[in-house]
C-alpha cells in the first residue's frame, strides 16, 4: 500500500472532564473516501478540528504527507493542502453564492493583493463558474448565502473548500439538515465532484445508507476513541457496532 496521506498518532484531547479524543491512531490513504461514524458527542468534529489546527491536541501528532503539522494554525494547514467543510456551514452570509466562490478562488490563486483586479474580474470569475457547475449551484448563484436552502449552503461550503484545490478534504456531516430525499442527490453530486478532482476525503456521516454506498473505509468513534475501522460491510455488520453504536 502507498504511504498514508494523513496520519494521526496517539492523539489525546480533553475539555475539562470530557475526553474528546483518546489515543486516536489513524491513517488516511490517497484517493480513498474514509467515513467517520459515531453517536453525538463521540468526538468526530473534535478530530477534524485537531487535524486542521483549530484545536491543539494535548498529546500525539498529526502528520500530513509525512510532515508533522501538529500545532500549526488553520491557515498554514489549509495552505499545505487540507481544506474542510463545516458541520455548520461557514459562509459569507450577506454575499451572493457567486461572490463567496470568487473570493475563495482569489484566496487560493494569484492576484489577491492587487487592488486593481476586482473580484468580478474573469480571472476569478471563470474558475468560480466552473465550481458553480461542478457543485450544481448555478440556480442560486445570484442569491445571498443567507437566503438559500440549507442543502445549497452545505454544497457551497464544500465548493469553497474545493476552490482551494486541496489534496485532502474533510467534510463534517455534509448532508445533515437536509431532507432525506435530497441527501443522496447531494452526496452523488459531491462524490462525482471529488472523484473528478482526485481529492481524498474524510466524511463525518450519520446516515448508514449513505455510508454503505459511498465509503471505501469506515471508522467508528465512541467517547473520543476509534472502536473499529475497516471496509463498510465488515464494520457496519459487526454485531458489537450494531448494538452499541447504530
Amino acid at each position: 500500500m502507498s504511504a498514508p496521506l494523513l496520519e494521526a498518532r496517539g492523539v489525546d484531547l480533553h475539555f475539562g472532564g470530557v475526553q474528546a479524543a483518546k489515543d486516536v491512531n489513524l491513517q488516511i490513504f490517497p484517493g480513498e473516501f474514509f467515513f467517520i461514524i459515531g453517536q453525538n458527542g463521540a468526538g468526530k468534529s473534535t478530530f477534524l478540528n485537531i487535524c486542521t489546527g483549530y484545536l491543539k491536541p494535548q498529546r500525539g501528532e498529526i502528520l500530513f504527507q509525512g510532515r508533522p503539522i501538529t500545532g500549526l494554525a488553520p491557515r498554514a494547514i489549509t495552505r499545505a493542502g487540507i481544506a474542510r467543510a463545516f458541520q455548520h456551514p461557514q459562509l459569507f452570509m450577506q454575499r451572493s453564492v457567486r461572490d463567496n466562490l470568487r473570493f475563495a478562488v482569489a484566496a487560493h490563486g494569484t492576484g489577491f493583493w492587487r487592488p486593481w483586479r476586482a473580484l468580478d474580474d474573469p480571472h476569478f470569475d471563470a474558475p468560480a463558474r466552473r465550481l458553480l457547475q461542478l457543485c450544481d449551484l448555478e440556480r442560486v448563484a445570484a442569491q445571498p448565502a443567507a437566503k438559500v436552502a440549507e442543502g445549497f449552503r452545505k454544497l457551497l461550503d464544500v465548493a469553497l473548500a474545493l476552490a482551494l484545490e486541496p489534496t485532502l478534504l474533510l467534510l463534517d456531516e455534509p448532508t445533515s439538515g437536509v431532507s432525506s430525499a435530497d441527501k443522496h442527490g447531494i452526496m452523488t453530486t459531491l462524490a462525482q465532484a471529488l472523484r473528478k478532482e482526485r481529492v481524498t476525503a474524510v466524511f463525518v456521516e450519520h446516515d448508514m445508507e449513505v455510508v454503505r454506498r459511498f465509503a471505501d473505509r469506515v471508522g467508528v468513534w465512541a467517547n473520543g476513541q476509534i472502536l473499529i475501522s475497516g471496509p463498510p460491510e465488515a464494520v457496519l455488520d459487526d454485531p458489537h457496532v450494531r448494538e452499541f453504536v447504530l
Partner: peptide
C-alpha cells in the same frame, strides 16, 4: 467584510 462576517472561514481559505 468577509472578516466581519465569518473570520474563521477567511482563515480556512488560507
Amino acid at each position: 467584510g468577509a472578516i466581519q462576517d465569518r473570520e474563521i472561514r477567511v482563515e480556512y481559505l488560507g
